[in-house]
Amino acid sequence: MSLADLPLHDMQRAASLDALCGIVAERHARGEATVLLAGGTDWVVEQELKPPRGDADPRPLVVDVSCMAELRGITATRGLLRIGAAATYLEIRRHPTVIERAPMLAAMARELGAIQIQARGTLGGNLATASPAADGVAALAAYDASIVVKSVRGERRIPFSALQTGYKQSTRAPDEVIVAVEIALPPEGSPWLWRKVGTRRAQAISKVALAGIAVRSEDRVVRLGLGMASVAPITATLLQTRALVLSRPLSAITADALDAAVLSDIAPIDDVRSTREYRKHAAKAVVRGFLRDLGAPV
């Protein structure tokens, strides 16, 4: 389907989340695709790259979820931040609780796209598109967030560590709707970093982006979350790097050991935005920067 085919599509809204799950399930059972459209910042652009639709090609149904109340809203209760899948990045960066208790998430949302994209883009959309270059998903990786999904079979939570299985592949079933993300809030004042390396500050897809959140106790990091965009087929969670940092006092972490751990955690490629070698260099540099902020001699 090309852009010219867009008017051929049907679009509807669902009366409720349950009704939406029903539509998706019924169509999936018949082998028909359903597109859940939120901000359209990926999907609409993708249509431009596709060849015109043949008469015999299946026509996906588009369901507009951008205004669905059950997928929106940002709430915090008992240390758990819940962000609706269709809440926009603009809503995220302006939300007082996010600014106060999840400042890294607010910083990420502020640097994602430009305001026009922030006003439309959503975490749910980035999770569904499942690009390893998505800034928002890197932030969720660092928070070790849970993804709340729902289908006619019920609701479940997918831990971030169990979400991604390969390039744009995930453990979410085709009939599961992304409802929200949940973040267990770190203690107030926890050190964090959002560092995006791109061509310019706005409207740049990251060459490398690092999301970091740490809990420190004297000379040790006792909890560490890391997420890195654009350095592997999936959002990198930098498990070797996390293990290294947690295994010894900050003062005993060396730059060489840290660099080696980072390189073992990533598998960057050459593409239109950057090169494999530059991404390796930048990945090491941004992780060193975060650890230096935390007090490691790197």
Partner: peptide
């Protein structure tokens, strides 16, 4: 809120 009208469907 500012949005790019090229990415918004009239149905939305």
């Amino acid at each position: 809120e500012p949005v790019n009208a090229c990415l918004v469907s009239i149905g939305q």
